[in-house]
Amino acid sequence: MIEIYLFIHPLCPDSLSSEKRLLQMIQNAPKKVQFKILPLLNLHTFQQFLMKQNTKFLNLYERNQLFDAAYSAALDYKAIQLQGKKKGRLFLLNLQDKVCNEQIPYSKQLVVDIIESINGDLDMFESDRQSDVIKQSFETDQAIAKEMSVSKTDSAVFFNYTKNQDYGVLVEDGLTTELLNELLQINDEEPSELTIYKQEQATVKHADLAHCALKLLKN
C-alpha cells in the first residue's frame, strides 16, 4: 500500500490542480493508495500564496480578509470530513472550483450551497463546525506538516509500505505527471536519482530529477 499526504491551501488554484492530478494518477496506480489532503495554513504559507497570486501589494485589511477566508475554508473542510472522507474531498473540490475558477468569493452562503449540492447533512455540519474538535484537528494537520518538514503548500509526502521502508518521499516542488507516475510505481530499489536526506544518518546524496527537491523522511 502507498500512502500520500498532500498539503494544500484551501483556496489556491495550484492546490486544486495538484489534487486533481493526484486523484487522476491514483485511479491508475498499480498498488492500493490512501490519499489524505491536509490544509497547511500559517503566515509563511500565506505569504507564499500572496506571491503566487500576485497579490502581495494588498493592504493589511485585504490580507486579513483573505487569511480569514482561507482559515474558515480549512475549518469547513475539516468539519465536513466528519461525514466521510469522500464527502470532504468532494466539498473541497467544489469549493475550490467555485472560488478559483468561477471567481465566486468565499462566503458562508457559498459553503451552505455546496453542502446542499453534494447532499451533505447541513445541520450536522453546522454543529460540528462550532466544535473545538475541528480546530484541534486543524492544529494536528499543522503539527503533521512540521513533523514531516513540510514548509510549502502543494507539497506531497509518499510512503510505500509494500517495501517495509521506514521513510517517506517528500516532493516540495514540481508535482509533474512524470514524477507522480514514478513515485506511484516505486520498485524495490532505493530511488537513487532523487535528492535524499536521511534524518537517521544525517547524510546527503545529491542528484537532480526534473529540478525537484525530494527528501527522505523518517516515518
Rank of each mutant, 00 (worst) to 15 (best):
M1D: 08
E3Y: 06
L16H: 05
L22H: 02
Q24N: 15
I26M: 11
I26Q: 05
I26P: 11
K32G: 10
K32L: 10
V33L: 05
I37K: 11
L40I: 12
L43E: 15
F46S: 09
F46G: 05
Q48F: 10
Q53P: 01
K56Q: 14
R63P: 06
N64T: 06
A69L: 08
L75S: 04
Y77F: 15
K78W: 01
K85H: 13
K87V: 15
K87Q: 14
K87S: 11
L90W: 06
L93F: 09
N94A: 11
Q96N: 07
K98F: 02
V99H: 10
C100M: 04
E102M: 08
P105H: 09
S107E: 11
S107A: 09
S107Q: 09
Q109F: 09
V111T: 15
V111F: 03
I114Q: 06
I118R: 08
I118L: 07
G120F: 13
F125I: 07
S127V: 06
D128P: 00
R129I: 07
T140N: 12
D141I: 01
I144C: 03
M148N: 00
S149T: 03
S151A: 14
S151N: 13
K152A: 08
S155F: 05
S155V: 01
A156E: 02
F159L: 15
F159K: 14
N160H: 07
T162D: 15
K163T: 10
K163L: 15
D166A: 05
L170T: 05
E172S: 15
D173K: 10
G174R: 00
L175E: 01
T177N: 03
E178S: 02
L179C: 03
L179W: 03
L180A: 01
N181S: 14
N181Y: 02
E182H: 13
D188W: 10
E189H: 05
E190Y: 01
S192D: 12
L194E: 00
Q199R: 02
E200N: 07
T203N: 10
H206K: 12
A207K: 13
A210I: 08
H211A: 10
H211L: 14
L217M: 12
L217D: 03
N219H: 05
